[in-house]
Design a binder for these strands. Structure first.
Lengths: 357, 357
DNA sequence: CGCACAAATTTGATCGATCAAATCTGTGCG
DNA sequence: CGCACAGATTTGATCGATCAAATTTGTGCG
């Protein structure tokens, strides 16, 4: 039998289309007895309303869009995977779907927004980064399209702009701060910070946490010599670590796992005796896990869920003139989530140091 | 001004809706002069047909679906990223969009198919794996829904089933074969193979390539002792490499980058003198790149593009009774792509071996 | 000139849902 | 008994496109 439609089902049940529609969209308008009878019939027939027809009438696609950046930019790799998965799952749970798209540049991204809004009628967008004075966020705001950004809108000076749009971000400083505290608890006092050259504010933010924790612990005077920048690569991490070690650092907090990987190697090499190289990375990538490297883990899943919450809330607010029954506390429009350190014991790989063949 | 529709634009131009529709969907039916006039007006007004309205009438959503596996399963990490990106890009270029969804299990995945087909009217699906006797592929085939699978349908014995559905896969054996040849060219003769325990056919396939190349080179007799299996982790790779080295192996082809990472570490350790640990990984993950490890790179982008080609071709065939003008050679329904080895010189990290602090 | 016939264009119906307004039921109460 | 009025249900229009069939325009030619 062909897929049932509202009309076909209505005929069978000898009720009107609208009544069935009401059972689905405004159950309180239907007499309980009728409602149950219809609900049962819906289940039995496996009736599912067509999104296209619904969208045509309501102008809602129940669909969010997200640009997939070309690999190696922005949040990527395993982090992006986790983020995407959580996003999709949360959207699905809220009755929305997620559509991906590609763009060559930010201006092309705007062109895509326009197209996707007109053609597919997307209800909102997820952005995975934003720059100060971002043309995309401005465009979306002017047009009144709902969107949420993963990442704070930093200004040119590395400060936070007072953007009025929704965003969620991970508090990098809180992460490195916690990493320092962990190392302090392990007995270290000369704890270095190893960042990368890129003048981006995310790195500066992570450095800030280290600084704060060192100050709080009373090691503020050591700070100048213990902060180093290197190339954002594994060898970069190694050379940075060598420099820090030469200045007496016994432990290192890094702004990425690549740096941490190189740093851990180097420390092992410099101090063959030490069991655990006191190095903490950032992002908690699979590499860190594979090598038994401690790392700051970002709660990207929570961030994704929150972004969906923000978007759906905004859309629900518009939709029904009278907001849902309980005024439902609106989700924070701007939220900073705290990461946490995943402490790991290095793998025996190094411990087996000079095992015979 | 509100978004133009076919009707509004028709009124302005004093032509009928259908004529404009024909300009877009069957230009040959419209007199050149009219066509150009209308085309210009479409551009000027920025008219874009609504996908929802179109879908309602044509029963085509121009949308493909793909299940996003929970992280750490199937193809993942950076490889998945590249695949997804290429998929999205290719779909977009062909006028299709990509919708993601999550599922808890294979049977739940079927439930999602059903829902997405009924509700969103998806035109086809991308699967990222298939098992012999896969319930999902069977369901899709019975229902006649177009789909393409990334990965060959292996049977229980590790052989290839004669499945009738479309798939694309990477020829793992060809990859390891090439890796062996590279090592042979570098002067190695005792080349080991390091795989993981998992009895999955992908690993067996990779081993097969090594075997083939060793045989071809006349080293078939060494084979039994030079094939080792270990746990699919970095330390697993290290212990496997130790074993292989003890049996005289001077180079190792691994079935993954994790194993290769551990193996490279171990070889370096065992032979401090050697400049380049002769180890080749598989998947060419960012880790391999970061550490300067040679690895077999899979052409996932090409695979993704081909899958979209297969799907769009199938849908185009159905759509217009008479296939597109030139009969357009149908894309291979089952395609095996050859990977290639990315040769890298290890990073100075190790070369700096015993540099002073 | 006029007819046949193809090319070009238009008309009305339809896809499957929701909206807004109309109609039908049923209950309370003077 | 009958009227008002809220509750329940139905009706007709509509969202924006395409399809199938009808109509108009144009061309060739006896």
């Amino acid at each position: 039998m062909a897929r049932p439609t509202l009309a076909s089902l209505a005929r069978e049940l000898a009720v009107s289309r609208q009544t069935i529609s009401n059972v689905l969209n405004a159950p309180h308008k239907v007499k309980p007895a009728t409602r149950e009878r219809i609900q049962a019939a819906i289940e039995a027939a496996g009736y599912r309303p067509s999104a296209a027809a619904r969208q045509l009438r309501t102008q809602r696609s129940m669909n969010f869009g997200m640009r997939l950046l070309p690999a190696t930019d922005g949040i990527n790799g395993a982090v992006l995977d986790r983020f995407l998965h959580a996003l999709t799952e949360a959207a699905q749970a809220a009755g929305y779907r997620l559509t991906l798209f590609c763009a060559d540049s930010d201006s092309d991204e705007i062109r895509q927004y326009e197209e996707l809004l007109d053609v597919a009628g997307l209800d909102g967008f997820i952005l995975t980064s934003s720059t100060p004075d971002d043309v995309r966020t401005r465009w979306l705001q002017e047009r009144g399209t709902p969107f949420a950004v993963f990442g704070r809108p930093w200004d040119a000076a590395g400060g936070l702009t007072a953007a009025s749009h929704s965003w969620v971000d991970i508090d990098g400083a809180a992460g490195t701060e916690q990493a320092v505290r962990m190392l302090l608890a392990q007995g270290h006092s000369r704890i270095g910070f190893l960042g990368s050259y890129t003048g981006n504010p995310v790195g500066a933010d992570r450095r800030r946490g280290w600084l704060r924790a060192m100050d709080a612990a009373g090691y503020g005077r050591d700070v100048p010599a213990l902060s180093v920048e290197a190339e954002e690569t594994v060898p970069g991490g190694a050379s940075g670590a060598a420099l820090l070690a030469s200045r007496g650092a016994t432990a290192i907090v890094c702004s990425s796992d690549s740096l941490a990987l190189g740093a851990a190697e180097k420390l092992r090499e410099l101090r063959p005796g030490t069991a655990r190289p006191a190095v903490v990375g950032f992002d908690n990538t699979p590499v860190a896990a594979a090598l038994g490297l401690s790392s700051v883990a970002q709660p990207v899943e929570e961030a994704a869920r929150h972004m969906i919450r923000v978007l759906t809330h905004e859309l629900a607010g518009d939709g029904t003139g009278a907001a849902s029954n309980p005024p439902a506390a609106p989700p924070e429009r701007q939220l900073l989530l705290a990461p946490h350190v995943v402490e790991r014991v290095p793998l025996p790989l190094a411990a087996t140091g000079s095992s015979p063949a």
